[in-house]
Nucleic acid binder design. Sequence first.
DNA 1: CACCTGTTATAACATTAGTATAACAGGTGG
DNA 2: CCACCTGTTATACTAATGTTATAACAGGTG
Lengths: 131, 131
Amino acid sequence: MLIEIDFSSDEAIYQQLCNQIILGIATSRLSDGEVLPSVRQMADEIGINMHTVNKAYTILRQEGFVKVDRRRGAFVSVSDRNRERAIRLVEKDMRVILAEARCRGLSKQDMLALVDRIYDEYDGVIRTDDK
Amino acid sequence: MLIEIDFSSDEAIYQQLCNQIILGIATSRLSDGEVLPSVRQMADEIGINMHTVNKAYTILRQEGFVKVDRRRGAFVSVSDRNRERAIRLVEKDMRVILAEARCRGLSKQDMLALVDRIYDEYDGVIRTDDK
DNA sequence: CACCTGTTATAACATTAGTATAACAGGTGG
DNA sequence: CCACCTGTTATACTAATGTTATAACAGGTG
């Protein structure tokens, strides 16, 4: 999977890396069980330090998106599938986003439509622009 | 409005302050035109430095949630109501959240329900737990 | 044994967050 | 005019964080 880092972003490199890998899993560009490039290889490809990649992998492991096999290295593995816990994890961030959206005059329907559209996109559904 | 800061959070103080004020506007605990405490007063109340509050106010001003009247000080004023731009601003963060949600096994319906619930909460709608 | 994996340790450097002190310009009310 | 309020700016300092650099180690592969 192609990783693109914006070095002028105010978002930390390791954070961008985490997000892109999670995006990759969600959009099936990374499939369950797929081996990730080694920390050294990924660092070389992107042009950053090994430790920055390692930090991203460590976080992804803690959050349950990645596991490590001593033989093969890091690979995609979404372990924790506890529904209630997952909702709780997402809810806090969602509250901040929805607050901002509401302040900017966006309606509930606007946000439901946005979620619907992005989710379909992740699912690979071809939309015929149904209004 | 009561502001609560978690000093052991990994989220910056000024960021927490911004979020809480936006949350306050979204939930109508802060109404349009309402004057915010002065940077010095707010800093004293919370127990932080004046500059940290000033940083939050400056960001809120840049993002269009607050304006400054030389006579009265800072007050709530959601200026920019451009719908397309608002959606674009929210979309990027939403993509990250939805990717994480999808990886954790949450369905589109789960997320639509979450958005629906939080939005109603912000609107002050009393839900009769309709399934 | 050479080579790969993640992991750990240590040091150095740059940027950011937060605090502290002080000053300034504009506006208000005595 | 004067004291007092507002946000704003400047400067300096400390602490934490992000990133890099170099090096070493244990486990597994061929």
